[in-house]
Nucleic acid binder design. Structure first.
Lengths: 161, 161
DNA sequence: GTGATTGCAAATCGTTTGCACCATT
DNA sequence: AATGGTGCAAACGATTTGCAATCAC
C-alpha cells in the first residue's frame, strides 16, 4: 500500500501537484476499499473518519484530479451518482462490471473479454478505440443461489423471463 | 410509424395508462429522431414545437413511463445527462455505442457483438444476464478521416456536418 | 364524480464554484 | 508575497415532487 501511495505521490509531483494530507487520506480510503465502487459521498464519509475537518468539495476536487491522472476511473451505473474505481496498475484495459438488479451489488471482471470484439469494431467501423465500458445487468451468483434455496425449501414457483 | 404508435398505445392501455396528446407527441419526437440520443431537455424542446403548452416535468414523466414499459432505454455516457434511446422492436439485445472523444458524436452498432462473451460470463461467473451496456470511447471514422486529410494537405480548413 | 394526468413552481440531489483563509516556498 | 490547496456556503444543472387545475371515462 505504501508503495502505491508513493507512486501516486511521484505522479502528482511530476505534474507539480502536492500530496496533501487530505489527498493522502482520500487515496488511502480508495486503496482500502478497492473492491467497492464508492460514490464521492461514500468516500467523503470514510475520509472524514480519518480527517474530520475535510470538506466534501475537497474530496470532489481530489477525485477529479485522480481521474485526470488516470489513477481512478469515474463510472456511472445509471443511478445518478458517479462512482470512483481505482485503476489496476499495469491494467491495459478498463475492467468490466456485473450489476445485480436484485441486491444492487457490483462485481468486477478483471479479465479482458473484449479483445476480439475490439478488433472487429476497429476494422469494421473504422473506429479507433481508446477505452471501453462494459456492464452486465442481471442476477448475481449470490441471489441465484438464494433463489435456488428458496425454491427448494418452499416449493414455491418463481417467475422467470 | 403509425403502427408503432398504435403498438405503444396498446401497450399503455394494457397497463391502464393512456396515450394522451402529450405522450403521443413525445413518442413521435422519439420516433422521428430515432438515430439520435436525445436528453430529456432535447426531447422537451422538440415536443414543444408540436405541443407548446407541454411542461418539462411531463416529458420526464413520460420518458420514465416509456422506460418502464421498455419502449425506450435510458443511457448515460457520463456527461451528467440521461439520454433516451428508442428500443428496436424485436431486438433481443441492447445495441452498442461508439462515443467519439473528439467530436462527441454517438454512433450505434446494431449487431450483437457480445453473444460469445455473454456465454463466458454466465458460465464462469454464474451470473444471469438480463441486459448489457457496451460503449467504446475513441475516435470516430469521420474524425479519423479528417485527421488523415489534415495531414495530407496541412492548413486546409475543416468543415464537418 | 373518480382517478389519471398535467403544468407550474418549489424542492431535491449530486456536483461545481467563488472566495477568504491557510500552508509551504 | 506568491502559489497552490482548503473549507465553507452559495450556485448550479438535471431531475423529482407537491399541488391545484384539468381531462377522460
Amino acid at each position: 500500500m505504501e508503495q502505491r501511495i508513493d507512486r501516486i505521490k511521484k505522479q502528482l509531483h511530476s505534474q507539480s501537484y502536492k500530496l496533501t494530507p487530505q489527498r493522502e487520506a482520500t487515496v488511502r480510503v480508495l486503496l482500502e476499499n478497492e473492491k467497492d465502487h464508492l460514490s464521492a459521498e461514500d468516500v467523503y464519509l470514510l475520509v472524514k473518519e480519518k480527517a474530520p475537518e475535510i470538506g466534501l468539495a475537497t474530496v470532489y476536487r481530489t477525485l477529479e484530479l485522480l481521474n485526470e491522472l488516470e489513477v481512478v476511473d469515474k463510472i456511472n451505473f445509471g443511478d445518478g451518482v458517479s462512482r470512483y474505481d481505482l485503476r489496476k496498475e499495469g491494467a491495459d484495459h478498463f475492467h468490466h462490471h456485473l450489476v445485480c438488479i436484485e441486491c444492487g451489488s457490483v462485481d468486477e471482471i478483471q479479465e479482458d473479454l473484449l479483445g476480439d470484439v475490439e478488433k472487429v469494431v476497429e476494422s469494421n467501423w473504422n473506429f479507433k478505440i481508446k477505452d471501453h465500458r462494459l456492464t452486465f445487468h442481471g442476477v448475481c451468483h449470490r441471489c441465484l443461489e438464494q433463489e435456488k434455496k428458496d425454491e427448494e425449501h418452499t416449493g414455491k414457483e418463481t417467475n422467470e423471463a
